[in-house]
């Protein structure tokens, strides 16, 4: 790990002013469960680390009748234990519980979960976010068992690591961001993640001197659930995750969203699966049909074809769980 300056601003204004306007010069530090390791691995060697720990505006969960607002520095454990979150958004609670390590969830934050860097082992071993040696990606001919099966025809082949991302997108959440000079903007969760096209780009639309401040989740009475397929519970990321949300009134389903995790460089919204379920009654058959539809367009690499079957199953089980039928 390279040496760096350590900043502990107590306001967002100070914090954004302490961040550089190009990636890599400075890094934001929340719980550190991802960043401290990235610093050790010298995936990033910033000149300055800006800690958010003293910014009280970023902490806490506020629930109103229409929405729940979650501060970026809320820990994952606090999120999963919150009364309003438990009542309205079981998909988030499952996503947190599946992380499995009390040490990660009691320190890791919601903002950090969304902004964590990918686990792609080429990236983690110094080949950059596009896993390149020279001009070519190492992924297609390399060990790509954990890489993308969707959205992998561009230069990015890694998978988004965030467990909360898919569930927040399915729930129609928005992510609030603060930049220098008190500029703020609100980004729909579905537009927050993106596949980088160049080595100096990142996996979200955040600018280097922007900070995620809070996440607004509308309360719309959606049935929702997350289902993950994991190698082991604790100390690992899923192979595949599916988050679903839908209205289920009078036995028919509407307003369906199906979002997959760990299959693409960004959480992957499957409109095919959503369409397949829309207007149906939830049962084994309709859920399986949606699962099948979710696999449309998958382009597995040499070593990750197994993920296609996992997508089918995860979507089916998430739908059944959301409807309370599992």
């Amino acid at each position: 790990m390279k040496a760096f300056e350590y900043a502990t601003p107590s306001t967002l204004d100070e914090a954004t002013a302490q961040l550089a306007s190009s990636w890599g010069e400075t890094e934001v530090l929340a719980g550190g469960t991802d960043l401290v390791t990235a610093l050790k691995q010298e995936i990033t060697s910033p000149k300055r680390v800006v800690s958010l720990k003293n910014i009280s505006a970023l902490k806490g969960i506020k629930a109103s009748a229409n929405s729940v607002n979650v501060g970026a520095m809320t820990t994952l454990a606090e999120l999963a234990a919150d009364k309003a979150i438990k009542e309205h958004f079981p998909s988030l609670v499952t996503a947190v519980h599946n992380i499995g390590s009390q040490q990660i969830i009691s320190v890791g934050t919601v903002g950090g979960d969304l902004c964590q860097r990918p686990r792609c082992w080429y990236f983690r071993n110094g080949y950059g976010i596009l896993a390149k040696q020279g001009d070519a990606s190492l992924v297609p001919d390399g060990d790509n068992r954990y890489h993308a099966i969707f959205g992998n025809d561009g230069p990015a082949k890694f998978v988004s690591a965030s467990s909360l991302g898919p569930a927040l997108i399915a729930l129609g959440a928005s992510i609030k961001v603060a930049g220098p000079k008190r500029k703020t903007r609100t980004v729909p969760a579905g537009e927050f993640f993106r596949a980088p096209k160049a080595d100096n780009e990142r996996e979200t639309v955040l600018l280097p001197n922007e900070i995620v401040t809070d996440i607004q989740i509308p309360i719309r009475g959606l049935k929702n659930a997350t289902y993950e397929v994991r190698h082991r519970f604790g100390l690992d990321w899923p192979y595949v995750a599916a988050a679903v949300a839908f209205q289920n009134k009078g036995g028919t389903v509407s307003d369906v969203r199906v979002v997959l995790g760990h299959v693409a460089p960004a959480p992957w919204a499957s409109s095919g699966a959503a369409k397949a379920l829309d207007g149906a009654k939830v049962d084994d058959v309709s859920a399986a049909k949606a699962g099948q539809a979710a696999t449309q367009g998958a382009k597995p690499l040499s070593g990750n074809g197994y993920k296609v079957q996992m997508v089918r199953t995860a979507v089916k089980r998430a739908i059944l769980a959301a409807a309370g039928a599992a």
Partner: peptide
């Protein structure tokens, strides 16, 4: 790097990987 738990301590009563906290 936060993947084994051998370094666990408590900070304000919460379990923490001390290898992953500055």
């Amino acid at each position: 790097r936060g993947t084994c738990g051998a370094c666990t301590v408590m900070v304000d009563g919460q379990p923490v990987y001390s290898c992953s906290m500055l």
